[in-house]
Nucleic acid binder design. Structure first.
Lengths: 210, 210
DNA sequence: AAATATATTAGACCACCCGTCTATAAAAAT
DNA sequence: ATTTTTATAGACGGGTGGTCTAATATATTT
């Protein structure tokens, strides 16, 4: 087996060689998919490499270990997600509570596009945190906190615009949102439809103190 | 290495031989611990066997495959949990909403006792359902439904006792409880304390329609 | 008591995985 | 042109995973 269909290239390629010149970024992107679908422990490095056609030898040139790779992937996801949050939650063309709905709508589309196989990387890794390198736990906690603050700010805007009660504890409400949100995403993955996300949003908005 | 400290027994042992005579039940118990802590994909059969001192060869005598074993473990957990729910939610010495609080209190104690390493088997497996044998998905969905019905009944009692509004959709409220609950358990595992569970209960009870 | 059936075990087997290593080669620097 | 740096190719080793076959000790039957 293993017929050499194409003479394998060896050695350093020209700087602009593979269709995508940035091998490291490609690995992170592929790892993001893989980790989001399979988690960290069950994700093989070989598989991640195969998807982008990068040989194993390269991996340990770019990353010192699987752990370091995982941290990088998580950071990459965190940045991506924070961007998405900012896009939705700071969009002043909608009232604050509507922005939360927009975020959920966006998430619904995203989950459906991937056939409910991905969910949330941070939530997934949080579930298996006891199997992960120790450094991951605080990293994940911090990411949740950053999401919480962003949402809390949006809720505070809702307060100042009179959408919710001025006595509400926005940080606590925001924390509650993300705690429940991970449950809703997990359930959506299980039943393979967006109902849990819709229901969750409705219930959350209705439950806010007026 | 591997000194033969004790002559290894072979062949069929007397019917009442090991300290615990029911090897199969022991395997299920050990598997329950293992699967709850590590999930299914990352749980090795070897480890499960080692914990109860059963040799590897025996495993496939008692179970036809890892998948069949997993199904048995899940069923065992479901029975255990349904018992716990009935104990709490049918206890007429407390008003219905208080019973829910009792369940949460029980869960808090349980999670702390295991250093927040276990969480909920059904929730954990739900997260990794895409890595699991196909048969698991419906099994998990059905278990959530059974929990939902039990809680819905409790909420209906709360209705008839005037604790919550008679117009409430108890099934929907119950579904919402379990969706969010899994998020709260997951977060409690991550931060390694019971705050998320307490907060979740508070928020849920306060959010019920009066 | 001998033969058969059954329950249980030992350990081989193969596939896979992570991390490392050496050899190789293109590009850049001298 | 020679050397140095950057990147790739792919084998290797130790370990683990699920599964299966052969072996063996007890129970049951004859």
């Amino acid at each position: 087996m293993n017929l050499p269909v194409s003479k394998p290239r060896r050695g350093r390629p020209p700087k602009v060689s593979r269709e995508n010149q940035d091998t490291k970024a490609e690995l992170i992107r592929s790892g993001l998919e893989q980790l989001t679908e399979k988690g960290f422990a069950s994700s093989g490095i070989d598989q991640i490499l195969k998807k982008v056609g990068v040989p194993k030898g390269s991996f340990y040139h770019y990353f010192s270990s699987k752990e370091a790779f995982g941290q990088t992937v998580i950071q990459s996801y965190a940045r991506y997600f924070e961007n998405k949050l900012d896009t939705c939650l700071l969009d002043e063309s909608y009232p604050p509570l509507t922005r939360i709905g927009n975020f959920v709508e966006d998430a619904k589309i995203g989950m459906a596009r991937h056939q409910f196989k991905r969910g949330c990387l941070v939530g997934n890794l949080g579930q298996e945190v006891d199997l992960l390198p120790l450094s991951f736990r605080q990293q994940l906690i911090d990411i949740f906190l950053s999401w919480q603050h962003r949402l809390a700010n949006c809720l505070k805007e809702a307060q100042s615009q009179g959408e919710i009660s001025t006595t509400a504890d926005c940080e606590l409400l925001a924390e509650h949102f993300w705690v429940g949100w991970e449950g809703a995403v997990s359930r959506a993955k299980l039943v393979q439809n967006t109902k849990p996300l819709e229901n969750y949003l409705n219930h959350y908005i209705l439950g806010l103190p007026r």
